[in-house]
């Protein structure tokens, strides 16, 4: 059930932060949310945070620059880069136009930023909050924040506000906090697959986001859920087909290799069952009020625009 009565539906939020363990398909899900929102006529900015290039692959484009690049109707994509972000920040907020020489400054800044909690985060997330504040886009999607990093990312304005008592950075943390902590505006989406480790990490992360940040979790997306093969009566028939006279008959009519086909179905049932157990655990441990969205295993290509479109279809069935 999308939204419920408690919270703003995911597609109505203006800042969507997508995170998830590596390999769960978070970039494809981010791209699919963008596609879905764009289909509704929204202007969407999607930003890759980890510079891995997988967002570019999701839209079948070349490397993404810092300056948003239109990748399809209503969708602009960019790649976060601390140096460019620092340059823009200095120009917009400190009113220091820097033309040359930023290389040394940026590298020096990198060292300071590594030491100072939240500085880098505030520059990258700050850029995206700025786009939300200025209403340049209807929706801003943040893709590729690692699960281990998302709490630090979201609480960066709090950390900075604690460390730095005065100055422009301090002021900036206030409006960022306003945007991030507004549940009708900002929502986190956690992407997982029905496997043990990603599921455990997802439930732990929901707890940490609740206790260490003031940001709302909008949805959990269970990606690549294998379809249920059989109901109970069908399963009995399947078992009966795999033995005795029925199996002999099958071998005669469908060929000796039908054994391998039955083995394949058994494997599919086992995989589905293993995944269903993990999903059940997840369902029990996701607090009420958070959307729980299934995306089926599509057995199609796992990257590229085609995949984003198909997953958008699947998401649309649950979210619209």
């Amino acid at each position: 059930m999308p939204g419920g009565d408690r919270s703003t539906p995911l597609l109505d939020r203006r800042l969507v932060v997508v995170t998830g363990k590596g390999g769960t398909g978070k970039t494809t899900v981010s791209a699919a949310i963008a596609v879905l929102a764009a289909r509704l006529g929204k202007r969407v900015l999607i930003c890759e945070m980890d510079a891995k290039g997988s967002l570019a692959a999701a839209f079948d484009t070349g490397p993404l620059p810092f300056e948003p690049l239109q990748v399809s109707e209503n969708i602009w994509a960019m790649s976060m880069n601390t140096e460019d972000s620092l340059r823009e920040y200095l120009r917009l907020f400190v009113h220091i136009p820097l033309v040359g020489r930023i290389g040394v400054l940026a590298r020096t800044f990198d060292f300071v930023a590594d030491a100072a909690p939240g500085v880098k985060e505030i520059l990258s997330l700050g850029k995206l909050c700025y786009e939300v504040r200025e209403r340049h886009y209807d929706m801003v999607i943040v893709d590729g924040v690692a699960t281990g990093h998302v709490v630090a990312q979201l609480s960066a304005p709090d950390a900075i506000a604690e460390l730095i008592k005065v100055g422009p950075v301090k002021d900036q943390t206030r409006w960022m906090q306003d945007i991030l902590q507004d549940t009708s505006c900002t929502g986190v989406v956690l992407v997982t697959t029905p496997e043990e480790m990603p599921v455990l990490e997802t439930t732990e992360l929901i707890g940490r986001i609740a206790s260490e940040t003031q940001v709302d979790v909008a949805a959990v997306v269970a990606n690549r859920v294998l379809p249920e093969l059989f109901g109970r009566s069908e399963e009995a028939v399947f078992d009966a087909l795999g033995e005795g006279a029925a199996l002999d008959l099958l071998r005669r009519t469908a060929g000796e290799s039908v054994d391998a086909v039955l083995d394949g179905a058994r494997l599919a049932v086992a995989m589905r069952r293993s995944g269903a157990g993990h999903l059940e655990y997840l369902r029990q441990n996701v607090p009420p009020g958070i959307d729980f969205v299934y995306v089926p295993e599509l057995f199609n290509r796992s990257t590229g625009r085609r995949s984003a479109e198909l997953i958008a279809d699947a998401l649309g069935e649950e979210l619209l």
Partner: peptide, 21 residues
């Protein structure tokens, strides 16, 4: 008749097994 189930049900299972493979 061999597995003692409705042909429609058996047909569905066979098609599903094949498709999943």
């Amino acid at each position: 008749p061999v597995v003692g189930a409705e042909p429609a049900l058996v047909s569905r299972v066979l098609a599903e097994v094949g498709a999943r493979f």
